[in-house]
């Protein structure tokens, strides 16, 4: 089946199977920042934006992306790099495998929440798991990024 969507501000027509998930479609078209790590919508690694809101691309059928604007980290080089620089300066990317999905959530949070408290930050990002860092370094980076350090 063919779907029409906007991916990182570029209009595309993609052929997808009825039972295909968006994360797989994105990877098959070369958006390799999108990672899968849980198969049960638990880990947040596949986070991308649909019409500006973060969502789990492993759990959305590609057909659902028809007519939507999808954004991956490849589409936000400037914004993502600004935060990635801070994250990396903290050493808080570690293995980096969860970083792209995490960064997409952080950027979405910045758009959604005004002056979030530490508790609100932690709550917003709970669905982004990380096994390397213990989360403390990520929190330090977010506070620097939001200017609340």
């Amino acid at each position: 089946m063919q779907i029409e969507l906007t991916i990182n501000d570029k209009a595309v027509k993609w052929e997808v199977a009825n039972d295909e998930f968006l994360a797989d479609t994105l990877r098959s078209h070369g958006f390799l920042s999108v990672k899968k790590a849980c198969d049960t919508s638990c880990c947040g690694l596949c986070t991308v934006w649909m019409d500006g809101k973060s969502m789990l691309s492993c759990s959305v059928l590609s057909l659902r992306a028809h007519g939507k604007k999808i954004t991956t980290i490849e589409g936000l080089p400037k914004e993502a790099e600004e935060f990635a620089q801070i994250l990396s300066a903290e050493g808080a990317e570690q293995c980096g495998f969860c970083s792209p999905g995490f960064i997409m959530s952080v950027l979405a949070m910045k758009n959604e929440l005004v002056n979030p408290t530490e508790e609100e930050i932690i709550h917003y990002l709970t669905g982004n798991l990380c096994r390397c860092t213990g989360y403390m370094g990520q929190l330090r980076a977010i506070k620097i990024y939001l200017g609340v350090a």
């Binding site: 390799l32 990672k35 993502a80 495998f97 970083s99």
Partner: peptide, 22 residues
């Protein structure tokens, strides 16, 4: 010194550098 990882930006930005990507 707290020097950043030499691969830090590439992996954080989702560059294709892991096994499946290659």
């Amino acid at each position: 010194q707290s020097i950043r990882k030499i691969d830090g930006m590439a992996i954080a930005m989702g560059k294709p550098v892991y096994t499946e990507d290659l």
